[in-house]
């Protein structure tokens, strides 16, 4: 492929009155990811470009950004694939205050995470000397394992239309984290988490638009996990027996 254009959102609050887009030309090699291209850009063309990056393999969740309007990880996106018409547009994640260029302030995201008490709350029985036995049907263990895959990249928040309108909505990642513990047979913290979850800005705000599921780079079915929480809470309200 010939040269392609990177059209990048630029904003430095200490210098710029308003945001602008800057064009860069890059020569893509096979296998070049958007993140590698950005790193090259920063080393060769423009050291003032700000973005976050660390592991470059889709596990640390640092480099979520809007790539052609969709929230994705730069390290998991091939330039060749993103540059359909010869231009790749990069913007900071929607719905978060921009600190600089592609770097956003995620404090709100972390604050919401803490509200679901995202840690194991064991029951009253003392822990055994060794490990607790955990016998789950394979499918259930897989679901639990999948839900624990979240890397906190916040792609789901940028894509969720509810999150966009309701700043107070807990949002997909926090709810997935809650589900990860609610579904863990070692956890007995439902009552403690209920205040945050069973709330108009908790699970009930989700209207199943499924954008979170689509956006998740770890292929977590966030919308499904939220539905599981809704089911559990509904069963509690209706005093039904079952998995609640």
């Amino acid at each position: 492929m010939d040269e392609i254009s990177f059209r990048i959102f630029r904003f430095d609050p200490s210098r710029d009155a308003e945001a602008r887009y800057q064009l860069y030309r890059i020569r893509p090699e096979p296998g070049l990811t958007v993140l590698s291209a950005l790193v090259n850009l920063r080393e060769e063309q423009d050291g003032s470009l700000a973005f976050r990056a660390s592991c470059r393999s889709g596990i640390c969740g640092s480099d979520a950004m809007l790539i052609n309007g969709r929230a994705r990880l730069a390290c998991k996106t091939q330039v060749a694939e993103a540059a359909g018409d010869g231009t790749v547009t990069l913007e900071p994640l929607r719905g978060f205050p921009v600190l600089k260029d592609l770097v956003v302030d995620q404090s709100d995201f972390w604050e919401k995470l803490v509200r679901v008490k995202p840690w194991l709350i064991p029951g009253p029985e003392p822990a055994p000397e060794r490990e607790r036995l955990m016998r789950l049907p394979a499918q259930q263990f897989d679901e639990l394992s999948r839900a624990s895959d979240c890397i906190f990249c916040a792609c789901c928040y940028a894509e969720c239309p509810m999150e966009g309108r309701h700043r107070a909505y807990l949002g997909p990642a926090a709810l997935v984290k809650a589900y990860r513990f609610e579904a863990d047979p070692r956890d007995a913290g439902s009552a403690e988490r209920r205040g945050a979850l069973d709330h108009p800005d908790g699970v009930w705000r989700c209207h199943h638009v499924f954008r979170c599921t689509e956006a998740c780079p770890k292929e977590i079915d966030a919308a499904w996990a939220i539905q599981q929480l809704q089911r559990r809470l509904a069963a509690r309200h209706l005093r039904l027996k079952g998995d609640a």
Binding site: W119, L120, P122, A127, E129, R130, E131, R132, L133, M134, R135, L136, F141, L144, S145, S148, F181, D184, R186, D187
Partner: peptide, 23 residues
């Protein structure tokens, strides 16, 4: 090492399990 692994299990680490439910 065993203390470390059991402590992490007690804190919630989702280790893969044997069919008997052990780590």
């Amino acid at each position: 090492a065993p203390r470390v692994v059991y402590e992490m299990e007690h804190w919630g680490t989702l280790f893969s399990r044997t069919p008997e439910g052990r780590i």
